[in-house]
Write a protein that binds this DNA or RNA. Sequence first.
DNA 1: AATTTATTTGCAAAATATTGCAATAATGTT
DNA 2: AACATTATTGCAATATTTTGCAAATAAATT
Lengths: 249, 249
Amino acid sequence: MVREERLQIILDHVSKDNKVMLAELSEKLNVSEDTVRRDIKVLADQKLLTAVRGGAVAHSPIPHHYRAREKHDIASKKVIASKVLSFLKDGQVVLFDGGTSTLAVAESLPDDLRITVVTNSFPVASALEDHPTVEVIFAGGRLYKSSFTTIGHETINAFRNIRADLCIFGICSVHPAIGITTRDYEEAEIKKTMIEVSKETIALSTLEKINKADSYYIGPVTELDTIITDVSPDNEELSAYKEAGINII
Amino acid sequence: MVREERLQIILDHVSKDNKVMLAELSEKLNVSEDTVRRDIKVLADQKLLTAVRGGAVAHSPIPHHYRAREKHDIASKKVIASKVLSFLKDGQVVLFDGGTSTLAVAESLPDDLRITVVTNSFPVASALEDHPTVEVIFAGGRLYKSSFTTIGHETINAFRNIRADLCIFGICSVHPAIGITTRDYEEAEIKKTMIEVSKETIALSTLEKINKADSYYIGPVTELDTIITDVSPDNEELSAYKEAGINII
DNA sequence: AATTTATTTGCAAAATATTGCAATAATGTT
DNA sequence: AACATTATTGCAATATTTTGCAAATAAATT
């Protein structure tokens, strides 16, 4: 068994399951662990893999933070995002609030959609950074570091200067009698304004937030034109909203 | 199970549901909580997540990539940044323009400095995300995707609502007779406003921009109170500005 | 203040790396 | 073909790193 042969086997192994261990290879190749170690070193020097204590791992093709982002797309959010797309038409001005659901929507906007997105969410703006045709207006204000959105009266004023066609809410709690509520006071104030300046309002939600309430009031459920969830519109939990004349998707 | 494997699992877990707990991971990975803690520390050091008591949470959804967009010329920017720090005092309201020099300043602000930073630059805001005591006001407006700053009249209006103690300009061209100029029209308009609303203005520069001019005019050099460069203040290229009464550092 | 819970620190045992060296194999030179 | 030269390999002695444990701190909770 010559070295080149071993190197190839090691590479194959790494590309197959992203890691190899010294002991394992030593046995498989009938050479000492030292030799395997040295082989790995050669490959690591060529940047073909990354040597780690006890073996080697594949050279990650993309930096970690990207990788982390892609997993962020849980199935249900993709479902919701795809449902939203049918509401978006070229030329519209659309408000996006902060939140992972709206972020998922922003990330999945088709490349040829020409809308103007107005948002107070850095992640949303950031997701649209590379989008070729979407115009982004960022509503400034005091930076709320934990959620990376802006809040406060400057943000509210920024929204007040907009007339939007559509407003997309991330997940808040909705309850037929109590109305739309959220956990954060500032967030509630901003959402009130977003509803005010939009012709139409869509709320994204998951089943666990339906028929629940949080501390801060945004408005009655009748402010919502449409509720989009990850489940079938026929779900019985949603019937109360249908009766209230809300479009359930 | 090698360490790299564990790190990957932890990252995946965090990106999936935004948090992990020590006990949970300890069991899943068959290692002690201490080891998990140390693993998390490693990841936290790389800014891939944030360690918290009892586990870890996902780092901000904002991708890092523009935080680290231009890594080059770090040395001279660090020099400049350190010179700036002596101008910053607790309680001040400071305007930061977009640009890699001001970004370097933002990144090197000491942890106990309590100032309010007003900026139209996403990278600057992002760099201050983890800063414990700096308040950030973001000047909203139309997103200028290539530099990831906001521009336009909304941005200018946002700055007009501020009275700042200090304004820190990134690198523009300066010329004793022609004045302060820059390559971009929108940028020039915003910088004019920034000067207007600030008591004091500091320009960061490198030697290659001194005695040069670009297409768009911001104002006469006398608008500048201080010029900070990466070279000695005694450099003869700078003498004209000293004579104009500008503080050279 | 008392109690629980989590973190830090020092430490020792285990696992893994490094280094020098000798034996062997491969290669080149006359 | 015989010889010298060089590279590869395994081994052993010696570092270094990782890991879990326990005691001491620190932080949150009651």
